[in-house]
Structure formats: structure tokens, C-alpha cells
Design a protein around this nucleic acid. Sequence first.
DNA 1: ATACGATCTACAGCGGCTATAGCTTCAAGA
DNA 2: TCTTGAAGCTATAGCCGCTGTAGATCGTAT
Lengths: 140, 140
Amino acid sequence: MQGHSIGALSRRTGVKVTTIRFYEGRGLIADPGRTVGGQRRYGDADLHRLSFIAHARQLGFDLDAIAELIALHETPFDAHGDAHRIASERIAEIRERITRLRRLEAELVRVVAACDGHCDDRPCQVLEALADHEACHGEH
Amino acid sequence: MQGHSIGALSRRTGVKVTTIRFYEGRGLIADPGRTVGGQRRYGDADLHRLSFIAHARQLGFDLDAIAELIALHETPFDAHGDAHRIASERIAEIRERITRLRRLEAELVRVVAACDGHCDDRPCQVLEALADHEACHGEH
DNA sequence: ATACGATCTACAGCGGCTATAGCTTCAAGA
DNA sequence: TCTTGAAGCTATAGCCGCTGTAGATCGTAT
């Protein structure tokens, strides 16, 4: 039987079998051909599309954004403007997340440092420091 | 009736009413006293504990980790060692997430840049670049 | 006494999967 | 050809950390 089985597709793309079926249910990929017995058989176009989805997921796009990108790909009316916008939104989002994580990191370091040096003779300050939001230097 | 209502607690801590009840169901806070009519009435200890939970959540601890920290607080046998460990694990986790996000950002910038300058006469490269994992500079 | 907001319980839903149960099909070896 | 065992199938429930809903009851100010 020609075509990739779902397992073969999974191995090639790194997307789990159950996840591929989940994507199909979500309409991100179409139901491919089936064997007489009802098993899915995929072509190279499916492989390409699934790679696209997998890569976009790795880049942090959510499934709705990916569906939008796919739609753009298929109906490329003003596609590049929209694709540009979606990708740019992601970049802004990622930069914001980085900023917030850095603030978090700084505060946690401060919390842990509050304990260092005098844990031997006194109760640990980490728990108290965690309870004490007032002491935070930045908001979060 | 003395004590804070759930709404008052919510206002003071910034934790939503439904979320407070959810935390109670999860065992993070105990069922406080009730009025004759069955409404919750909280004391200052509950307020303090909820502030602790809220703050820890803002710092990215998951509910299991918070439950662990609370247990340490109540049975402080070797508490500071464990609290230290949990907080340090969080720091490492956050640093890893920052690293990954920076790689993501760099790649998205590259993808968008692939389009800039020649979107007017050619189909947009963003979609193709997204599909093309081989072109990635770092792994993710 | 009445009105109206706050609270109550119970349950469904979100995203993005993952896991399980209980079956059927495929493909390779004897 | 027959047999076996892996891989596939559907359907459903569960994960996290909430959020939102419905429909009932409670509390308090006037």
C-alpha cells in the first residue's frame, strides 16, 4: 500500500500519533486517504503540512494562529501582510514573556539569597520571603 | 458577623472568588468557619496563607510545589533545605525558559526578515520559512 | 418587609494534548 | 495459507489551573 502510515508520519515529524489524530479532529489537517480496512495513509503534502504545524508549534504559535497561517497559505489574498502581522505579534509576545521571566528570576534569587549565610542558626527565610510581597522590588 | 467574607478576601488578595474556592477544594487552604447560613468567614491566618499562595503563583510555582512549601511551613523539619531546593529548581527552570525564548525570538526575527524588502513583487517568504525547519540556526 | 448584591453548590469548558480500553487491520515469517 | 504480533482504529476520560454558568440561598441596608 503506497503512502505513509500514521506511525511513519509520526516518526518522520516527531509528532505523536495521537496528536496527529487530534490535529485532524481540529481541522488542521484533512482526513487523508484510507485503506480498505480504514487506516490512514498519508502523502508527501500531508508530511509537509504536518512539518509546518510542528515547527510553528515549536515556535510557540497556538493552534488558532496556525490554522490562520494555513488558511493564508491556501488563499493567499494579502497573505504576506497577515503572515507578517501574526509573526510580529508572536515576537512582541515572546519579548514580553522574557521580560517578565527576568523579573521573576531576579526576585527568586533575592528570596533565596535572603536565606544564605544564616540558615544554620535561624529558621529559613525563604518561606517568609515568599509570603512577603511587599518586599518585592518590581511588580509582577 | 466577624471575619472576612470570601469577596473581601478576594479584594484584599487579588485572588478571584472562584479561585479561592478552587484552592480550598485542592486542599491548599482549609474550609474556614461558616455562618449559620453556610457562607465562609475567614480570619487573618487565612488571609496570610492566601497571600502566600498568590505570591508563589505569581512567581511561577505550580500548585503541587506550593502545597509542598506549605507542608514545610507547618512541619519545619529540615524545612530550609527543602525550601531552598524548591526555589533553586524554579530559578533553573526560569533560566532555561529564558534561553529557549531567546532562541525562539531570534528565529522569528529571521523568519520575518526573510520577507522584508521583497514582499511587493514576490509571494511572502514567511510561510515558507516557517515550514522550513532545516533553515533554523539553533535547535528547539 | 423588601430589594438587591453577595454567596452557595455543582458542573461544564478552555488549550493542547495524553492515556486508556477494547477492538480491528496489516504485514511478515513459517 | 495461516498465524502472530505490532500497529492501527474509535471513543472517552484525564491532565493543569483555573473560569464561567445556572439556579438557588443568604445577608444587609433601607
